[in-house]
Write a protein that binds this DNA or RNA. Structure first.
Lengths: 357, 357
DNA sequence: ATTAGCACTCATATCGAAGGAGTGCTAATA
DNA sequence: TATTAGCACTCCTTCGATATGAGTGCTAAT
């Protein structure tokens, strides 16, 4: 740990990693000696590589094979060695356009858009992609509407600032008159509109129920329904796409592995944990990279996972994740995720200044 | 084609198929001679098998291997030879319970339930499962509610008989007064409530817009929105589960095949075609079996697909599909699908007789 | 400090032989 | 005439032996 890597070792390490990223094959000393511009013979490289191996940055799958990066090596790479890539503009613009198309396509249906986004990510990166629907806890309520669908059934519709709509039908113990429904609507909207879910506290509720008189119980039910509709655990939708891209990477695609991995991608609950975890622990720009064992999900320990947090507008946030082999193209993935963050941000712009209801 | 199969050939064919269903290995004459109760030597069986092969019911993967059923053989099997299985009660009840649990669990959220149902199917059968959300064209409108969320934005909520709720926000060109919203609500509910989408025709629309006066344009927009919300093509959600079960069957799980197949399961649009096709062409009890090449989807030509149409209540219908190897346990699958049909039917029971709104 | 050279290791591919399952055919049998 | 025993034959599969080749580590020379 305490050894410092001199310039040359860094170059060689980088060369090893980049070469391995491309080919997926262990890379030998001879290859490096040609690959880099420092004119060194394979023998010299061999010596350096032996050092690097001893320090734990690279390793041999077996004696007399080339070297592949270790988790530690990848870590160093993404932390220090990886430069912002100079993007070939044409290609990049193409991809951005692709994504915009998807976005515009179904802008009014968030779910469809997220699904499309996941697909677009998977296609562009050639890895598996997953994306969570936004979590609403900090999203503000804009409008609440109760309607009597049947004498003992109330339809409760909640519209939020981000134009997301939740609804629920609730049964009430006895019939309710139209005037009472109207009264409830007024109460709810005057008290709750403009508040975020987490701002609704007990004091507020008891104040409201105090005013409600005989409608007390129904009001409580409605508030419960609102809370439940927004409850993030319950509500966490995850969209995945490109699971089969896994097959494109031989080191992951032996039957055992691939099967488990793809199963995991079907297990939304496991993913949920992973994604919310990384949403809460924000680091540099909200992008987080898990390499190999660093991931909290056991079945992914032969992969790398890159997650990013996106934010539609104040308080409406979700997470995007990309799953691929350890030798994934980190630069491209990070860059792509950054773009997507941006795209999502502009698709549902920050709240406009209007306050009227 | 014109040859008739005598009793004994049928028995042998059935024995071959059943044995192959269990093992997945080509089955030889010796095996059959022990497997069946007609006491025949392997030599006799061999002769019969040669005949069966000539007739196209079975085939040899290579000289001097056992026989496996051909598509034609499977066809005969599912059409004629397959008996309703005597179910071991304990096991069956267990499975039924499993499904009920899933149903009760999330009864109020159709989507979650369908997802769970797909999962339950996949787990129970060990094949891949897919299920479409119901199509609403024949479902009846129960209640329509317009609300002004913002001065120029109307929230339109539609509740159907089957308690499904659709919503959409529509922009209107100019501000609308509260009285006008109320007026529209009354018009919409008196004219449309109780009708199925397909019953709303042009005459009805023009009559309504005639009454609407200055609200004419908005009314048209609302009706469009309702139609769009229910448009089946646009709206067709498909839930899949158990894609990785494919790996359990060696004959499907070489990389080439499995990868394509699982990709197809991600391609909702392809599945949509398959499932709606089979929904429309109803045969015996709505259950349809595609064997090998019979399936309309090319990538599934090494599989069999079994589909069933379910009906929640009058006019609300969807399709369930199971995808597995040709040697899938047809009896069990058919039986399971029948159960699911039933379960779904009882989860959302036929409309009760109430007419009040 | 670097490099050339060489022996060594080990995964992989190739080949042939052995083994075995299953067939088709023929001749014997009931 | 239908069934069966027996046998030769086919062809897949397995196994071990061998060869190949990429890549290393080490030593000695530059």
């Amino acid at each position: 740990m305490s050894e410092e890597l001199d310039e040359r070792k860094l170059i060689i390490l980088k060369a090893v990693i980049q070469n391995y990223l491309e080919t997926g094959e262990p890379v030998g000393s001879r290859t490096i000696s040609k690959y880099t511009d420092l004119n060194l013979s394979s023998a010299t490289i061999r010596n350096e590589m032996a050092d690097l191996e001893e320090m734990g940055y690279i390793l041999q799958p077996h004696t007399s094979a080339g070297r592949i990066p270790s988790d530690k090596g990848y870590r160093l790479y993404v932390d220090n060695l990886m430069k912002e890539r100079e993007t070939q503009l044409e290609q990049k613009e193409q991809e951005v356009d692709d994504m915009k198309t998807f976005l515009v396509d179904k802008m009014d249906r968030l779910e469809g858009m997220l699904q499309n986004m996941a697909k677009s990510l998977a296609v562009n990166t050639n890895y598996a992609a997953m994306i969570t629907a936004p979590q609403y806890t900090r999203n503000k309520i804009k409008f609440i509407q109760l309607s009597a669908v049947e004498p003992t059934k109330l339809l409760c519709v909640v519209v939020t600032q981000s134009k997301l709509i939740k609804n629920k039908i609730l049964e009430i113990p006895e019939e309710i008159s139209n005037e009472d429904v109207l009264k409830l609507n007024v109460m709810l909207n005057t008290s709750l509109a403009g508040l975020a879910l987490e701002e609704i506290n007990l004091a507020m509720i008891s104040q409201m129920t105090g005013q409600a008189g005989s409608l007390n119980q129904i009001l409580r039910d409605v508030i419960d329904a609102v809370a439940e509709a927004f409850d993030s655990e319950e509500n966490l939708e995850i969209y995945t796409s490109g699971a089969t891209n896994i097959f494109k990477y031989p080191e992951l695609s032996d039957r055992e592995n691939a099967s488990k991995l793809i199963s995991t991608l079907e297990e939304k609950k496991v993913l949920a944990g992973l994604l919310t975890d990384s949403m809460n622990s924000e680091k540099n720009n909200g992008i987080q990279i898990y390499i190999g064992d660093e991931t909290p999900v056991q079945t992914m320990k032969d992969c790398s996972v890159v997650t990013a947090t996106y934010e539609l507008e104040d308080g409406v946030r979700g997470t995007i994740g990309i799953i691929g082999p350890k030798r994934m193209d980190y630069e491209k993935v990070v860059e792509t995720l950054n773009q997507v963050k941006q795209q999502l941000g502009s698709a549902y712009p920050k709240p406009d200044a209007e306050k009227k209801s």
